[in-house]
């Protein structure tokens, strides 16, 4: 009945392709991270640990790592909380709510670059709509993207625009497919709203919520378009996160070897929250 050859033939091309196109760059990247290839020096050899030494001693890298931590924690934390809240608001079924469900699906289809340019224009200090309306309301008009205090929060805000709906849509799907009987039982037992959420609803949607948080963590570490379009990593180093720094070092400044080492750092740094979230999802 079972045809080993057929299934082997069906699987091998994809497995081989994935292996080659990921392993080759990974190995070459790892090799480059020990090399000293720069704009002026083209040779790969000698292989040394100097790039990694530089990473640990460079205070710029420390700033960048801190920025990355702030960005990821703020973006993922707020997106998970607000997304959960938004999903809970949409559980009731009526015509108005279904309109909202469609509206909150929209950002999921919008390419990062398009949201970046729109928000860049909206947050523009002299011509943007947002500051114009703040002025009309006699409210302070922050220099959103150019001031050191507001630049990072502004980028997080724009990230929320695409991230909160992702979490909301996923959690809502889980809420709607969760069995109704336990809630009914909790009601009969006289459980209050918080107890019902804490002990009945939340356990039912926890896997979906963790998965949504995982997806947003991956997205936060990979975020590039927002930083390039909105702030260019500035002012100063204020919004330079690790992924953007890797890009700057390798592509802009041509420090290939150093950039490759930073990319390895990015991989390691990123693994930490993913493993934590994964372990949390395994916990009963």
């Amino acid at each position: 009945m079972f045809d080993r050859r057929f299934f082997g033939l069906a699987a091998v091309p994809a497995f081989l392709a994935v292996f080659i196109i990921t392993a080759v760059p990974l190995v070459i990247g790892l090799g480059l991270s020990f090399s000293s290839v720069t704009s002026t020096h083209n040779g790969v050899f000698p292989l040394t640990l100097s790039n990694y030494g530089h990473i640990f001693s460079d205070s710029e890298v420390h700033t960048v790592l801190l920025n990355t931590l702030i960005y990821v924690v703020l973006a993922v934390g707020l997106e998970t909380l607000l997304g959960l809240g938004l999903a809970l608001l949409m559980t009731r079924k009526n015509r108005a709510i279904s309109v909202f469900r469609v509206i909150f699906l929209l950002p999921l289809t919008v390419a990062g670059i398009a949201s970046a340019i729109s928000w860049g224009a909206l947050l523009n200090t002299s011509q943007g709509w947002i500051d114009y309306f703040l002025k009309l309301a006699h409210l302070p008009q922050p220099n959103w993207l150019a001031s050191p205090t507001t630049a990072m929060p502004s980028v997080v805000l724009v990230d929320l625009w695409s991230g909160v709906p992702v979490v909301a849509v996923i959690v809502l799907a889980a809420l709607l497919s969760a069995p109704k009987d336990p809630i009914e039982a909790a009601l009969v037992d006289g459980a209050g709203p918080w107890a019902r959420f804490r002990y009945v609803t939340f356990p039912a949607i926890r896997p979906a919520l963790v998965l949504a948080a995982l997806l947003r963590t991956v997205a936060a570490f990979q975020q590039f378009a927002l930083f390039q379009v909105l702030t260019g990593g500035g002012p100063g180093l204020n919004t330079t996160v690790l992924n953007f720094y890797v890009y700057q070092q390798t592509i802009v400044f041509n420090n290939i070897g150093y950039g490759a080492a930073l990319a390895m750092l990015l991989l390691v740094v990123m693994a930490v929250p993913l493993v934590v979230l994964f372990l949390y999802s395994r916990r009963r």
Partner: peptide, 29 residues
């Protein structure tokens, strides 16, 4: 699939790894 777990983990790594990990070496290649 023989070695299915390893292949699985490799696929997850490839999917979640920041594109910079692959794109920048590819740029050089």
């Amino acid at each position: 699939v023989r070695g299915g777990r390893i292949i699985n983990s490799w696929f997850i790594l490839a999917y979640v790894a920041p594109p910079a990990i692959f794109i920048i070496p590819l740029y050089i290649i």
